[in-house]
């Protein structure tokens, strides 16, 4: 069985402070966290606007956004590949096969998640606040900001959902990043590579490390949110 070998491989990699592993982890963190930051900057206000605004076609936008939550990464990756290719409309940027393209790909995948879950979270809150806010003459912008701030602890979970999808993603970053050793190789693409090389224990070992990192990250965020909620009330 491969599992015991996988565990010992994982421990050996960590204990030796394997340089390649450290690079891969650093790039994975940079790409994923940047993508989550981009998605938060775009998705949170978008979700808040959708929760507040009433306009014709709002339902259609919400359905579309919900559907995009299930966007197949390979499709997103391919579309972005064609856009960023030197022969594509955004070829001038020279982003293909760089971390920028990978960040863009992951951001595209998680913006719908962040926006859609944000809208759901803020919908209920807005129903409670709406009349009071209109009585106070609160502007649309201030109302969005107030909702986002008041729902901040629930939105941490929304961001974590985006983080989860981004860090687990392999299809899109493989296509637009190219899985170039030392440049665009992340945890997930490295796992895919080791699997295709038939080195299953190493692949599984890398997988264990990825899971461990995610557990630590989620645990830390959860604890921080819990602490902040206790302090802020």
């Amino acid at each position: 069985m491969d599992a015991p070998t996988a565990f010992s491989t994982a421990f050996a990699l960590i204990l030796n402070g394997d340089a390649a592993l450290v690079d891969i982890l650093r790039l994975s963190a940079l790409v994923t966290l940047s993508a989550v930051a981009v998605a938060a900057v775009i998705g949170l206000p978008l979700g808040a606007a959708l929760a507040l605004a009433r306009f014709p076609g709002r339902g259609a936008v919400i359905v579309a956004l919900n559907a995009l939550m299930g966007l197949p990464p390979v499709v997103a990756g391919l579309a972005l590949y064609l856009l960023l290719s030197r022969s594509g409309p955004l070829g001038e940027l020279g982003w293909l096969f760089t971390p920028k393209a990978m960040i863009a790909a992951q951001a595209i995948l998680i913006i719908p998640i962040v926006a859609s879950l944000t809208r759901q979270t803020l919908d209920d809150l807005w129903r409670e606040y709406e009349e009071q806010f209109r009585s106070l003459g609160v502007s649309m912008g201030s109302a969005m900001a107030a909702l986002l701030w008041d729902a901040r602890f629930s939105l941490v979970t929304v961001i974590l959902a985006g983080l989860g999808r981004a860090s687990a993603e392999v299809g899109a970053v493989l296509i637009v990043g190219g899985n170039i050793a030392g440049h665009t190789r992340t945890m997930t693409t490295a796992i895919a590579l080791e699997t295709s090389k038939g080195d299953l224990p190493l692949a599984l070992g890398l997988g264990l490390i990825l899971i461990a990192v995610m557990v630590i990250l989620n645990g830390a965020t959860f604890a921080a949110a819990l602490w902040a909620r206790r302090v802020a009330g």
């Binding site: 009585s135 106070l136 609160v138």
Partner: peptide
């Protein structure tokens, strides 16, 4: 003119911040 509702609507922040928020909106 202002209005007070049957069930008070309170923002999820301090009592003082709730009053400050209303003044900022004004």
């Amino acid at each position: 003119h202002a209005m007070v509702f049957q069930r008070p609507v309170m923002l999820r922040r301090s009592a003082l911040a709730n009053v400050t928020f209303a003044l900022r909106a004004a």
